[in-house]
Design a binder for these strands. Structure first.
Length: 950
DNA sequence: GATGTCACG
DNA sequence: GACGTACGTGACATCA
């Protein structure tokens, strides 16, 4: 490669005026006009892409006009005096030009009292003096004087008009002016410039000026020759206005000896760091560029991609009824899966070769095989790597029966293999692709390996296809399902390899040939899925949510799972005992009242006892023909004066608390850590919420005094406290913003109690009763309302419920509009979207079955709100630990997420310092991508237990 | 494995 | 004019 330096000098100020007039008046999510900024950004993008290309820039700087005053005004006050002020919607874009430049990590030069042209001339001269080539990115005719000029060591100057994509060299300048570049100043001095208010000779335009310079050599020659010309208007003017022409010559001459504010070497172009750029693109809604940033390459942008409302629906099937993902044609043909091609790596030299190839390819599919499902307890048994179709291996590390030491197959020592793999798995330069890689993250973290950076096919699938399923075709994101759906291939199942039920063996006992087929196939399939799914993020608009929300969340959630939370086993045991006694007593009482012994926990038997034997009135239900015995029904019976109903309700509550919580949580304590480690699913809820399993720590009781005792068993380590931070009414706040409801927005802005305000609007009066009704209605709105549903909840007639709904729509204009608009979009496109661009598909939205259809409609009304809330808390989680660390609060640990709440454990002494940091991160989590019309209220409490922290 | 119930946001 | 009623989850017990 040539080491010839090539400096690009971008005439930023001139560019945005042109971009402003050429591009449509786009605005960013905040409403700020950004059309010219968008044009400017795409131009920088293109220039930066030329880095490393032949004759592309090695150095680059943007030069801007700092002020309207320069030395030219001192010699000629009228200079640029008749310029109209910039258009109103261009003004706010000037500072954004600097932001954009900073976002690209490019130097931006501007100096008081100097025009951009002078700085450009000075830099160009300095660079050519060092033998560099220079390209001036501009189409300003004044700068054409510089073209072609060479320094002593041979550097050349040309210009680049990025809008016309045209190079301007000496021939182009001569074509335009009829003279070589060094005479352009003479022509300009004669013809003047009405835009800059350079006088020139009145009546002399480009044609005459060119002719005069061609005929007489230069300005002085032309002016001197005037005396000898034959009498004419031109002769008169040349003589009369000689001074003006000479002044003009000075004005158009570029000052080439300015002090250089930054040395040339500082302009070295060394790639564009993605981080500040991504934030900038996101802030201004430049989503197509953002997608390209995520993808590394992509199709050219169209400016109308900017407006989210007009976002192109590329690659998505518009008809919701047929919204199965289409096979992706751009994925190159791959050979069929061939399990016999997989390698079993049992010696260090071969392992080193795989590692070396992975480094070279910069992306590797990784899968760990373990002895159990629980990432916090499982032993690592082997690792598989995938580098291409059928190019996969399995590295067994702990195979062989525990009691058959002599039969242990040949394999690399686990510690040695991990030591060799660690640099690869932790290298910034190599993407580790996994299917649910959070699991592998947690397993390997326990062996001292912190996998990063990662991509996850399961989560990519979720971000593309959440909710997309049809009859008989699963909508899940598990590997076997994805493999069938996208690759048409059914992988070996775990059951086929390890057996099932009592005969099941652990993976470490599987013979190596069989283990290799299974494990390497997983890596192969994961690698292939990645080739299919990753490009779809770009074409289907999933990059924003994947790159900015879900992908960065993976290591954060993995960390939370590894932290776990301490539960007080003794107090849970005590509760279990108390509950057991009470359950036994209730059981006897119930059997006495019923006058027979039956299984209370069996809804079937209970229904028969209540409605057949005891003769209470109630309805059958569902296809099973079984009596309903749920809480609502038992409460009705209780009102009818059925003493058994209350007892059953109490029994149910205690049984639930004991089996699901006080017993199960004790069993869930990890013997090694002494804490409870849940597992969060990032693809569990179609709306984008997390879900929690094994155990579920997102449904720990709080609503009743009895249940709250369980929450009090979640405690901090000695010297520490638990801190709980909740978003207050976040979904209603988002509804107020998204549906643009003035009354609700006012109420939140003023910090009013939102249900009281609703009661005031609906009923004109606030008391306990109307507030409770208003609260019910508020939730009904969020969940997609029906008059029957509301009537059922409020205990009124459907007509009355409808009247309340009508009043609600009237008092809160915007809500109905939101509902109608949301449903229209979902019917047309097949999916809903959150404020951050997360899609949820509703394949049954146009179903002929009214039950199905209306169910989808209610879910579709709710999904953007619930999903936006999920996006916001996820963004907060991603930022939380870095923010705390920056505030020297590195000992604060984030433990749990419960949809609108985060739970932390921290030293008691850190509480007061941590509160404002946590509050700020949560309250500002939507920014800068979205500026909400309502504040996000945060409630924070702390105490020795989770219960006490509320 | 399906069903009913109930814990949470 | 009908759905048989609110959105989103996961765990447990019972029963076929």
């Amino acid at each position: 490669m040539s080491d010839k330096k090539h400096l690009y000098l971008v005439d930023g100020s001139a560019y945005i005026f042109r971009a402003y007039h050429r591009l449509p008046p786009l605005t960013n999510p905040e409403g700020t006009p950004v059309g010219a900024v968008y044009g400017y950004t795409t131009m920088l993008w293109k220039l930066a892409e030329d880095l490393d290309k032949a004759n592309g820039p090695t150095h680059l700087a943007v030069i801007l006009d700092k002020s309207s005053h320069s030395f030219r005004n001192d010699i000629y006050p009228e200079y640029k005096a008749n310029r109209p002020p910039p258009p109103e919607d261009l003004l706010p874009q000037f500072p954004l030009i600097r932001d954009a430049t900073r976002a690209f990590s490019l130097p931006c030069i501007e100096e008081q009292g100097l025009e951009a042209d002078d700085l450009i001339a000075s830099y160009a001269r300095a660079a050519t003096a060092r033998g560099w080539d220079v390209t001036i990115v501009s189409s300003d005719k004044d700068l054409m004087q510089l073209v072609g000029r060479c320094g002593e060591t041979g550097g050349c100057i040309d210009m680049l008009d990025t809008m016309k994509n045209a190079r301007i060299g000496i021939p182009e300048v001569e074509e335009k002016f009829g003279v070589p570049p060094e005479k352009v100043g003479d022509v300009l001095a004669l013809m003047g410039d009405s835009v800059d208010n350079i006088p020139g000779i009145y009546g002399v335009g480009p044609k005459t000026a060119t002719k005069l310079i061609q005929d007489y050599g230069d300005l002085a020659g032309a002016l001197d020759a005037a005396a000898g010309m034959k009498t004419s208007k031109l002769k008169e003017r040349l003589i009369e206005q000689r001074e003006m022409a000479e002044l003009s010559r000075v004005l158009v001459t570029l000052k080439e000896d300015c002090d250089l504010p930054l040395p040339l070497d500082d302009f070295l172009l060394d790639g564009v760091p993605p981080e500040p750029l991504a934030a900038f693109l996101e802030t201004h809604g430049f989503s197509s560029l953002l997608r390209r940033l995520g993808a590394g390459s992509g199709s050219p942008d169209r400016p109308n991609d900017l407006n989210p409302a007009k976002k192109a629906n590329v690659g998505a099937n518009a008809a919701a009824g047929s919204s199965q993902p289409v096979p992706d044609q751009r994925v190159p043909e791959m050979p069929a899966i061939d399990r016999s091609a997989y390698i079993c790596v049992t010696d260090m030299a071969t392992l080193e070769q795989w590692i070396e190839r992975a480094f070279a390819l910069r992306e590797v599919a990784v899968d760990t095989e373990t002895s159990a499902l629980d990432a916090m307890q499982a032993q690592l048994v082997g690792i598989s790597l995938g580098l291409g179709p059928n190019d996969a291996c399995y590295i067994p590390l702990a195979h062989g029966g525990h009691d058959l030491l002599s039969d242990k197959p040949q394999q690399i020592d686990r510690a040695a293999a991990l030591a060799a793999l660690k640099p690869l798995l932790e290298s910034d330069a190599v993407i580790k692709i996994g299917q649910n890689i959070k699991y592998d993250l947690n397993v390997l973290a326990r062996y001292g390996v912190d996998i990063a950076p990662v991509d996850d096919t399961m989560i990519i699938s979720f971000d593309l296809d959440a909710g997309r399923s049809l009859d008989g075709i699963g909508g899940g994101h598990g590997m076997d399902e994805l493999s069938v759906r996208h690759l048409g291939h059914t992988p070996l199942t775990f059951k086929e390899v390890c057996g099932t039920g009592k005969k099941a063996i652990s993976f470490g006992e599987v013979p190596l040939d069989r283990a290799t087929q299974y494990a390497a196939e997983d890596a192969d399939v994961t690698w292939r899925l990645y080739q299919h799914l990753k490009p779809r993020l770009v074409t289907e608009g999933g990059t924003r949510i994947y790159e900015r929300v879900d992908r960065p969340l993976i290591p954060v959630v993995a960390g939370m799972e590894r932290e776990g939370i301490k539960v007080d086993r003794a107090s849970l045991a005590k509760l279990s005992k108390e509950f057991a006694a009470e359950i036994g007593s209730l059981e006897k009482q119930i059997h006495t009242i019923a006058d027979c012994e039956f299984t209370i926990g069996s809804p079937k038997q209970l229904g028969d006892v209540l409605f057949e034997k005891m003769g209470y009135k109630g309805g059958r239900k569902g296809k099973s023909g079984q009596y309903s015995t749920d809480q609502a029904m038992l409460e009705k019976l209780d009102e009818q004066g059925a003493p058994i109903a209350t007892k059953v309700l109490e029994w149910r509550q205690l049984s639930k608390l004991k089996s699901t919580y006080t017993d199960a949580l004790q069993a869930a304590i990890n013997p090694a850590t002494g804490r409870v480690h849940t597992s969060y699913s990032l693809v569990g809820a179609q709306t984008g919420r997390l879900s929690s399993t094994d155990p579920n720590l997102q449904n720990i009781p709080i609503r009743t005094a009895l249940g709250r005792q369980i929450r009090e068993s979640f405690v901090a380590e000695p010297g520490n406290v638990l801190l709980a931070a909740d978003y207050s009414q976040i979904e209603l706040r988002l509804a107020a913003h998204m549906a643009d409801v003035p009354a609700l927005k006012d109420a939140f802005a003023a910090g009013q109690d939102i249900h009281s305000r609703t009661a005031e609007e609906l009923f004109g009066t606030v008391d306990r009763e109307t507030r409770a009704q208003a609260k019910t209605i508020n939730f009904a709105i969020l969940y997609g309302i029906s008059r029957w549903g509301l009537a059922g909840r409020l205990g009124v007639e459907p007509d009355q419920a409808q009247a309340m709904i009508d009043t609600y729509f009237q008092r809160f204009p915007g809500i109905q509009r939101y509902i109608v608009a949301t449903l229209e979009t979902v019917r047309e496109k097949g999916y809903s979207e959150t404020l951050f661009g997360r899609k949820t598909w509703f394949p049954r939205i146009n179903s002929k079955n009214p039950n199905e259809r209306q169910g989808s409609e209610r879910a579709a009304i709710n999904a953007p709100i619930q999903g936006t809330s999920a996006d916001i808390i996820k963004r907060a989680m991603v930022r939380m630990l870095p923010a705390l660390r920056e505030a020297s609060l590195g000992h604060v640990r984030m433990l749990l997420q419960v949809h609108d709440e985060l739970v932390f454990e921290l030293p008691e002494g850190d509480v007061e310092a941590a509160k404002p940091v946590i509050e700020s991160v949560m309250a500002n989590a939507a920014r800068p991508a979205i500026i909400l019309d309502v504040p996000l209220g945060i409630e924070i409490g702390s105490g020795p237990s989770w219960g006490a922290a509320h």
